[in-house]
Simulated scan of single mutants.
Amino acid sequence: MNTIKINHKDQAKNYFMEGYNCAQSVFLAFSDEYDLDSDTILRISSSFGGGMGRLREVCGAVTGMFMAAGMIFGYTNPRDQIQKSEHYTRVQYLAKKFEEKNNSIICRELLGIDNKRDIPVPEERTKEYYKKRPCFELVSMAAEILDEYIMEQKGEKVWQDQQNGEE
Rank of each mutant, 00 (worst) to 15 (best):
S25Y: 10
K84M: 08
Y34G: 03
S47Q: 10
T3D: 03
E86K: 02
M1H: 09
N77H: 03
I4L: 07
I44K: 02
H87D: 07
K116L: 13
Q163W: 12
S38D: 08
V26D: 06
M52Y: 14
N21S: 03
A95Y: 14
D114L: 10
A68D: 00
I41S: 01
C107S: 11
P122Q: 08
E123D: 12
G60Y: 08
K96W: 14
F48V: 03
M67K: 04
G70F: 01
V158L: 13
Y75F: 05
P78I: 01
K13E: 03
I145G: 12
H8T: 01
E18T: 05
Y149Q: 14
D10Y: 02
Q92H: 14
Y34I: 01
R79V: 02
K154R: 13
V139G: 08
W159I: 07
L94M: 12
T63G: 13
K131L: 13
K132F: 06
E100N: 15
T76L: 02
Y15N: 08
S45N: 03
Q24V: 06
Y93H: 14
R56H: 08
N14K: 03
E123I: 03
P78G: 00
S140C: 06
C107P: 09
Y149T: 12
L146M: 10
H87L: 06
Q92S: 10
Q92W: 11
L94R: 13
N14W: 02
K96I: 10
F66G: 12
M141F: 11
T3L: 08
C107E: 09
G50I: 00
D32Q: 03
I41W: 05
K127G: 08
L94E: 14
N77A: 00
S31Q: 07
D35T: 01
H8R: 05
E99A: 11
C107I: 09
D39K: 06
Q153L: 14
D37P: 00
E128T: 10
S31R: 02
G49I: 09
M71F: 00
R108W: 14
